[in-house]
Design a protein around this nucleic acid. Structure first.
Lengths: 224, 224
DNA sequence: GCAAAAGTGTTCAATGTACACCCATGC
DNA sequence: GCATGGGTGTACATTGAACACTTTTGC
């Protein structure tokens, strides 16, 4: 009686115009030397969400990011050490934010970003976890506002569009994208702008949480 | 080290034109005498889905119904006996199918159907589980084909419509409903019909799994 | 004045929604 | 012939998709 419970977090971010996942190289058996989704064991008296946030902090040094429970994997043979349940989560890091130094984690030798669509061979059943997370993210991006978790506090509309394109894996029309995202009514234009290259500066926008709440109350956005 | 894992299943069905959930009355402490979502503990070497199907069979006597993992609840204080994780599922029973005799389960004194929108006070955090399940079912009904899990193998379009109305909690237009559901292309009209009262017989339809698969491959239906 | 990214509207197709009448059957 | 539920089509509004040019800035 009693199984061990791991909490594994698929950490997504957009880098170099592509959707990436943060993976750690295992430093101890089983699957020593293989890449894996970062995670760790649930502690006594710790809530699942707390454990996920703790692991996320240890692994990346960030707090206050979007985090959502994904699925619980529990096939009897999934961990050679014995019965281990994995409660999986996915987290979104804003593009451009720094991930923690690789040595920050405990039993992870190193950490690196990998293309989320073409990951290396993974330990345990983590390939299934990553697949599932990718699928869920992609779907939610089109139908909810999770996408705003992938951009920093202030961003240009073009930056936002690039993020969407990276996750969806296809280009989108600039005019349609801007109209649609502005029509949502959850963006606020700031008075500032930013110049990327040697060209016309772009207006900076920010996400308006209060307007978002209004929408959610009216059932416009899907809650799960 | 090691927590106990419960598998709890919210069992939905439409009875008397309303969405109902099957609940069991607890015969032992804690929460003795309170109603609860049926479930039980995960056994060694048992997959999560297997455990859910086993509980479902014990509780209702049915197999081969729609079953989907919902969410994992794990707040430290949710069970006074100690640390217990609940991996929750929801299942759909076709309208009109018989549920098992109340005494079939183990530590459940009795079982009964309750209005899913207005349940009695529930044990543990089961009210949250039921809320979550209801929300998910309702949402999926509009955007996927889960709805077909709530009708028997052969059904009239009016029966199907009544089921949708019960879950959504509002009436829908007959003509629009029929057009939409037929346009999906996953229904096959049989040659038979059935007479309910003293009136014109209604054509019986059945669900075509092969056509459904074609849609799913093309990404028309949402997979989760 | 030119290179480079920002910004902006209209047309068309598809989809969803509102709405009312005739049909088949048993008594 | 009448009561009861079965069955059908059209007009309109909303939504999503395709598509190209002008503007601002630094050099």
């Amino acid at each position: 009686m009693g199984v061990r419970v791991a909490v594994d977090i698929v950490i997504f971010s957009v880098r170099d115009g592509r959707l990436k996942a943060l993976l750690v190289k295992r430093g101890v058996p089983p699957f020593e030397g293989r890449w894996a989704v970062p995670g760790g064991f649930l502690k006594d008296d710790e809530a699942l969400d707390e454990a996920a946030r703790r692991e996320l902090l240890e692994e990346t040094g960030v707090a206050d990011v979007y985090l959502e429970q994904l699925f619980t994997f529990g096939a009897p043979g999934r961990d050679p050490r014995g019965r281990v349940l994995s409660v999986s989560y996915f987290a979104l890091l804003p593009a451009g934010s720094k991930a923690a130094p690789p040595s920050a984690g405990g039993d992870a030798a190193e950490a690196a970003w990998f293309d989320a669509y073409e990951p290396p061979p993974l330990a345990f059943d983590h390939a299934a976890i990553l697949d599932y997370a990718r699928q869920r993210l992609r779907w939610k991006l089109e139908w909810t506002t999770v996408g705003f978790g992938l951009v920093p506090g202030r961003f240009t509309l073009t930056e936002l569009q690039r993020v969407f394109e990276a996750v969806l894996g296809r280009g989108v029309d600039k005019r349609n994208f801007r109209r649609k995202v502005l029509a949502l009514g959850v963006l606020r234009a700031t008075k500032e702008s930013r110049r990327e290259g040697l060209t016309r500066p772009a207006r900076l926008f920010e996400f308006s949480a209060s307007r978002f709440e209004k929408l959610r109350e009216r059932g416009v956005l899907f809650p799960f």
